[in-house]
């Protein structure tokens, strides 16, 4: 009796979901036919005829739309990868300060987290770009030789040129995500039993050593799942690049949709490329997670 009741509800819910999606697909198809458009991806191999400011691989306007999209995907990947590293670095530091003994650092990091988490990311990106980077008048050079120079055209770090758009997106994404990562780190460390701190201290270990050897290994299993979802958020948030003029896959897709008049195909490609990207991230993190759990439980 109970089983059949459960099954009926499940079937009912499944039917509702399917019929909603049916209506959407039907709507789409009807409208496509109405405007005389079928599904097609042939345009992917036609020349893009627009230039790109940044391209990690050779690119010219006579290359195909498909190649332009791939360049956009690489641009996305580039900014996501570096933001990921930077956000983890800042986030871990702030998270540790938050649970540390230094009162000043604790207050500063609490303030940092509060401010960053309570303002929208788009606003922060606009701030980094239009105020922080483009607001620079002249060139700020580092005192020692040509290590670092910053102007409103971008950053030159040891001969590596980063555009103003890339820099502001990198900073914006890293700072925003770091505040969330800090909270994940703090939560992970707080999840470790207080007795662990007391026991390593009674063994005469310094706080820093104990943190590294005793606390963090036990906190990691609690931190990683939270970290994964922050990484996935970061990857998705990178599409706000369009607000600061960085040519990520979303921005390029936007131009392509406009030129070819194929929004549905364009968005499907966008969807798949993000699915692919996020599957890489989540599988990588899952692999890391399993490895850590295995190494901390050798039995």
């Amino acid at each position: 009796m109970k089983i059949s009741y459960k099954a009926t509800t499940q079937i009912l819910i499944a039917l509702i979901v399917i019929s909603i999606i049916c209506i959407l697909i039907n709507n789409l198809t009807v409208n496509l036919i109405k405007t005389g458009l079928g599904f097609s991806f042939g345009w992917l191999f036609r020349p893009a005829s627009f230039a790109l400011a940044e391209h990690p691989l050779p690119y010219s306007p006579s290359d195909s739309y498909a190649w332009a999209l791939f360049i956009g995907w690489l641009n996305s990947l580039k900014v996501i990868f570096y933001s990921l590293l930077l956000a983890t670095l800042i986030g871990t530091c702030v998270g540790l300060f938050r649970v540390g003994k230094n009162v000043l650092l604790r207050l500063v990091s609490a303030g940092y987290i509060a401010i960053i988490r309570q303002t929208p990311l788009l606003l922060q990106l606009m701030f980094w770009y239009f105020v922080a980077i483009l607001g620079i008048k002249g060139t700020i050079a580092s005192p020692i030789g040509s290590v670092l120079s910053i102007s409103n055209q971008g950053i030159n770090l040891l001969g590596i040129k980063l555009s103003a758009e890339f820099t502001s997106l990198l900073l914006g994404l890293s700072v925003f995500t770091s505040a969330y990562i800090a909270e994940v780190v703090r939560g992970g460390i707080n999840s470790v039993d207080k007795g662990q701190w007391e026991s390593f201290r009674s063994l005469g270990l310094k706080d820093s050593t104990g943190l590294y050897k005793i606390i963090i290994p036990q906190a990691l299993p609690a931190i990683l799942p939270g970290l994964t979802s922050q990484y996935l958020n970061l990857a998705k948030n990178s599409t706000l690049a369009i607000a600061v003029g960085y040519s990520d896959i979303y921005a390029i897709n936007d131009t392509i949709i406009n030129q070819t008049g194929r929004p549905i195909e364009g968005f499907i490609i966008l969807l798949l490329s993000f699915l692919f990207l996020n599957l890489i991230i989540s599988n990588g993190m899952e692999y890391l997670n399993t490895a850590i759990i295995r190494s901390s439980n050798p039995y």
């Binding site: 399917i18 999606i21 049916c22 039907n26 198809t29 009807v30 109405k34």
Partner: peptide
């Protein structure tokens, strides 16, 4: 499950 849920009747 979704295959075949396309209805091609079009209002004009």
């Amino acid at each position: 499950l979704l295959t075949g849920c396309v209805n091609s009747s079009i209002r004009t």
